[in-house]
Amino acid sequence: MRVEYINPFVEAAFNVLREVLNVEIKRGELYLKSVSQPVLGVTSIVGLAGDVEGRVLFDMAESTALAIASQMNGEKLASFDDLAKATITELANMITAQAITKLHDLGFQFDLTPPAIFTGDNMQVTDTEIEALIVPIEMKFGKIEINVAIREKN
């Protein structure tokens, strides 16, 4: 995966999270993950198309997702309900869209698909033949792992 692809995602994640959550955001070390990987509990996914194919996963514990959704709605949400799910998927959509906008300015043509969300324990994500780069982000609500897998089309 080309390195140029990843920085726009890191920057977009920082900008959007800072703006919508208004808390301090810290970035961990980037790392590569292999083909099959367990996820943390709430995973929102945005598909990529255009010059490339791939997807971006936003993975977090349910308690983190609930705290983020509460903050974004300006009220304490009691459970991880439909509104909370819609909030997390929109967060994933906003970060990916801002990254795609930055990539566009760099001359790459990317498009995105509407986000989807999965919840549950013991989930695994399997991508065949795409390696994923993980951007870990820490904040007072917990950890988000942004998992970017992009492959150029032949």
């Binding site: 974004m72 509104l83 819609a86 998927t89």
Partner: peptide, 8 residues
Amino acid sequence: DDSMFVTK
């Protein structure tokens, strides 16, 4: 908008 969050 497809997001209930944004609509709200």
